[in-house]
Design a protein around this nucleic acid. Structure first.
Lengths: 109, 109
DNA sequence: CGTAAAAATTACGTAACCGAAACGACATGG
DNA sequence: CCATGTCGTTTCGGTTACGTAATTTTTACG
């Protein structure tokens, strides 16, 4: 029950702020790139999220445009594209984590 | 930091399940209708979420179609539309709360 | 070699969504 | 009553995202 209140306040904060408005899929991609060990490929993310590859490609287009992630060719197998982290992405997620944990504190108190 | 891992797992669970795929705004509307005291109006939700009224109308179209909320005319002022809860909505949010708190438990352990 | 397989992307038609503005129903104060 | 304001919805033009299917580039293997 408190979990729902946590979710409410955090989602509310996310919707309200003007800053980049990411879809659930884009957010899932971003979080997985930053919080799970590399390498990250399109195919891997597609199967992990249970969505099609083009959906991942489009999410990466958007995230790259925002400079939250970066694409890099895999030199050992040039068919692959490796997704890498960026400074902006790190900052964005740190901020977001701060919001969520701040909300959690408020609820606990 | 754990907050981000919590968020990652919960978003991942949300994206993976085939069932109704709600946008952040729709989710925000749904959560506020269920977790804050009534009455809930379009204008009230619009200002709370800091989005336009049509955006709320469309979110309610979608949520009504899924039978997660219900619109009801305000008899005392027929310009108003009151948003009410439904059984399906309660079940949906209870399930979601279960997922989030389950993830939280896993992280704590 | 050369054919098959795999990776990501692009193409394409469809559906959902957005904000601004126009609209219709209703309320309220003069 | 009627003029003005309020509330929710609809309309409009444009953007974005989706899934399926075709394309491109690269690798693997027979």
């Amino acid at each position: 029950m408190q979990a729902l209140h946590l979710w409410r306040l955090a989602v509310l904060a996310g919707v309200r702020r003007e800053t980049p408005d990411l879809s659930a899929r884009q957010m899932a991609v971003l979080l997985n790139v930053y919080l799970t060990p590399p390498p990250h490929t399109v195919r891997g993310l597609a199967t992990l999220l249970n969505v099609s590859k083009p959906a991942i490609t489009r999410a990466l287009d958007r995230l790259s445009e925002l400079e939250l992630v970066r694409r890099k060719a895999d030199e050992s197998d040039r068919r692959n594209v490796l997704i890498q982290r960026t400074i902006k992405g790190s900052v964005f997620l740190r901020d977001w984590g701060g919001i969520v944990s701040g909300v959690a504190q408020d609820i606990a108190a």
